[in-house]
């Protein structure tokens, strides 16, 4: 009983830190979503240079640990380029996560675009539509319904991966939990913290499932 009471008293500060976790996850994913569309289109571009460059980007960010990327942006970049001294830890975390997520989303989007039947491109071409019209009006509207499930999956992963930013002292849910644990010398705080993560992922998974049902009307 005593323990339960303690956990409840920690709740306000944990929930406050949860805002940072949510903010970082949502901001990074939205930023990444924007860039990943261009990365995906670059990857399938017929111009070799563009597809090679975007391929290299994706390879790099999927081929190295996210934590290392975070260190690289927060510690290494300022040393290499003094002009690039990121003061804000949150901004560094946002940047690292956006760059990383973009690589994963780009692959999701590329796969969805390439899963669309070749006949759709041919029909659009036969009707005189340009490449960009075809992509914008025919291919992406169909592909995006197929992207939603894996993108939602990715977002739920990101929600949990953001706990890594506690290592560069961004005050997210994980960091706050660690602080309480050491200040109060009480590791019970990990229980409510994990429950909060569970509840958030449950809420988002529920929303995304509803979204999927809605989008699958014509298929």
């Amino acid at each position: 009983m005593d323990n339960l009471q303690k956990m409840l008293t920690w709740m306000p500060s944990l929930l406050k830190a949860t805002e940072i976790t949510l903010l970082l996850s949502i901001l990074s994913t939205l930023t990444a979503l924007f860039f990943s569309v261009f990365l995906a289109l670059g990857k399938i571009s017929k111009r070799k240079i563009i597809s090679k460059l975007t391929g290299a980007y994706i390879f790099f960010f999927r081929g190295t640990p996210l934590l290392m990327q975070l260190f690289f942006i927060y510690y290494t970049l300022p040393q290499l380029l003094p002009a690039f001294n990121i003061k804000s830890r949150f901004f560094a975390a946002w940047l690292a996560f956006s760059l990383n997520i973009a690589a994963y989303l780009a692959e999701i989007i590329r796969a969805a675009i390439q899963s669309i039947d070749k006949g759709q491109f041919e029909a659009a071409k036969a009707l005189g539509m340009s490449y960009s019209q075809t992509m914008r009006l025919i291919i992406i509207p169909q592909a995006y319904r197929r992207m939603i499930p894996p993108i939602c999956n990715e977002f739920v992963m990101v929600l949990k991966d953001t706990s890594l930013v506690s290592i560069i002292a961004v005050v997210d849910l994980t960091y706050q939990t660690k602080m309480i644990a050491s200040q109060r010398a009480n590791s019970l705080v990990y229980i409510p913290a994990m429950l909060i993560y569970l509840v958030i992922t449950a809420i988002f998974t529920f929303i995304f499932n509803k979204l999927e049902e809605k989008l699958s009307v014509y298929e």
């Binding site: 659009a124 005189g128 539509m129 014509y218």
Partner: peptide, 24 residues
């Protein structure tokens, strides 16, 4: 006209016929 139709499945009949008219 294609063997497998290649209609645009995300558009209604009417929209299928209209899209290239307005765009092209």
């Amino acid at each position: 006209v294609f063997q497998r139709f290649n209609l645009f499945p995300h558009l209604t009949s009417l929209e299928n016929i209209m899209i290239a008219q307005t765009q092209v």
